[in-house]
Amino acid sequence: MRKTLRFTLTAAAVIGLSAATTTATANATPGSGVTSVTVLDKTIGTTEYVVKEITIAPGGSTGWHYHPGMVSGIVRQGVLTHNESNCSIDGIYHVGQRITEESGPGYVHIGRNLGSTPMVLDVLYQNPVGSLLAVDVPNPGCPFE
């Protein structure tokens, strides 16, 4: 919890504003069982900085997608299973662990909650202004969502 708070506060300090909370759905669809809350949204120059709290229900997923900008996060609760487009698991992330995702259509991936409790992830998006936070893509042929 302390690391998550420090991460969020650091992101706020870097972009120099106070947190404002609004509820939204996750941008990466078609996912299932995913909700998000925007904690911070600030544009500086050509970059939009967005901090979100993303929750994936048990059995849920983000759906296949990629990000136009860099993404980093910290697991606050549960376990995140992360797969690449070749169907392999490129990470299993537990509470307190950081995840960083590359940007662009060459890094298609999915995040899944294979556990029995909600998975909560605090995420910082560093995104080109005017771009979606995530771009949906079809399942690349994996035997799961």
Rank of each mutant, 00 (worst) to 15 (best):
L5H: 12
G104K: 12
E101Q: 15
G111F: 12
V95M: 10
H94L: 09
T47L: 08
P68H: 08
Y125D: 05
T4G: 14
K42L: 06
F7Y: 07
R98F: 12
G73K: 13
S88A: 14
Y49F: 14
K52R: 15
V137E: 01
A12D: 00
G45N: 08
V137T: 10
G91P: 14
V79Q: 14
Q77Y: 06
L40F: 06
G73N: 12
A57F: 05
L132D: 15
G16Y: 01
I54L: 15
L5N: 10
N27Y: 13
T21H: 02
G96R: 06
E145W: 05
P118R: 02
T81N: 14
W64E: 00
T35L: 01
E101R: 10
V120S: 00
G31L: 00
L80A: 14
G111W: 09
G69A: 07
Y125H: 12
T10S: 10
I56M: 07
K42W: 02
M119S: 11
D41F: 05
V120R: 05
C142K: 05
G106M: 10
P143H: 13
A28L: 09
V39Q: 12
T55L: 06
G60D: 02
Q126D: 02
S103A: 12
L133W: 04
V39H: 06
Q97E: 15
T29P: 05
G96N: 05
C142G: 06
S32L: 05
S61I: 04
V71Y: 11
E145Y: 11
R6D: 14
E84C: 07
T21V: 14
D122Q: 12
S61W: 11
Y107I: 03
G59S: 03
S88E: 15
N113H: 07
D41P: 04
S88Y: 09
C142Y: 03
P30F: 01
V129F: 03
G78F: 02
V120Y: 00
W64L: 04
L17P: 00
Q126N: 08
Y49T: 08
G31R: 03
V135I: 14
V129P: 00
T4I: 12
M70W: 12
S103T: 06
V120G: 00
D41L: 07
A13P: 00
K3W: 04
F144K: 07
G45E: 03
G60R: 01
I99P: 03
I92V: 13
Y125P: 11
P105N: 15
T38C: 02
G45F: 01
A11P: 01
I110K: 02
V37D: 00
L114P: 00
T35Q: 09
G91V: 13
Q97G: 07
S61R: 10
S131K: 13
L5E: 14
T81E: 13
P140C: 02
D122V: 15
D90T: 12
G106V: 10
V75A: 14
H109N: 05
E101M: 12
Y125C: 04
P58H: 08
A24R: 15
C142N: 04
H94Y: 11
S103D: 06
V129G: 04
M1R: 08
V137I: 03
G69T: 05
L124R: 02
